[in-house]
Amino acid sequence: MRIRAITQRILQQFIHDKRTMALMFIAPLLVLSLMSLVFSSPAYEPKIGVSADTAVFRTALEAQQAEVTGYGDVDSGNAALKAGDIDAFITMKGSTPSVVLEGSNPAANRAVIMALQEAAQSLQPAASGSGSHMPQISYLYGAQDMKTIDRFGPIMIGVFVFFFVFLIAGVSFLRERTTGTLERLLSTPLKRWEIVTGYVCGFGIFTIFQALLISWFSIQVLGIMMNGSFGYVLLMTLLLSMSALTLGTLLSAFAANELQMIQFIPLVIVPQIFLSGLFPLDTLPLWLQRIGLATPIYYGSEALMDIMLRGQGWEDIARDVFMLIGFSLLFMLLNVLALRKHRRM
């Protein structure tokens, strides 16, 4: 009854506040569109090193969009690769080219592989079936399953959903305090957990629509790679929103005004983005990787990548689902405790 009252009130406030609603629904779409433009524009021209014995292949490569440099011996080529002067180094193993990718930049990896494939295809008629020109690829840094640029999509969905919900929920809970309505609420027989639950329900309804819109827009309009179930994408987006909502309302207890709420962005949001898997985590120091394991966005984007890129199902995202539910419950509980600061009973 009381929870319903709060839920209904939040919905009414939203309907009256068109701008906040626009921020929640339109802003993520805008930013995602921008992202998609930025990442799909000019093709990167890879720098490829070749050893002296790859003459045939070299000619084919030079016809592609690539900067090709010749190295007299294998050692100097490998050194250039290590130094980061070239993105890949090609040598011949018999009649098959062997490619070592530098590997730390997904954009470069993809460009190299594309150039190689096209070069190999152009050689195919001449070789007429005898022996393969398809190169063998290995990586200098990074692992075999080095992600391509497509991985940004799922992560960015997670990041933006988290960011906007965190901010809006945090600020609106903060305003309960600064306008005195929180004190007014606490002078009614309302229990502290009812306030927190009411917020989760009220915002929850909005985040369902937000999750629907963002997932649909990313996949259908922006055409972000999608191999898995739409339902799971929706579920993960929603759970991530929940964790953002509960964390935002919790942290608002430690902000005196809206500006201080904004100050949580570099502290809470930005580090999560860096540790979300956007950049390869394997190369980070262990303690930093461990911190990543304690952030909701990490689990959200991990699961979204599993679903959207690898087309995986429930068994593979179950851990992430439970982690996010756990985070939300923990933040809610802490918020109920933080409200003790305002009323002890």
């Binding site: 009854m1 319903r4 007014r184």
Partner: peptide, 20 residues
Amino acid sequence: ALYTELSAKENLEFFASLYG
């Protein structure tokens, strides 16, 4: 302590519900 973006009626209904 009022929700200024709501109408008076919505404010009253909200608090009335809190008191049952």
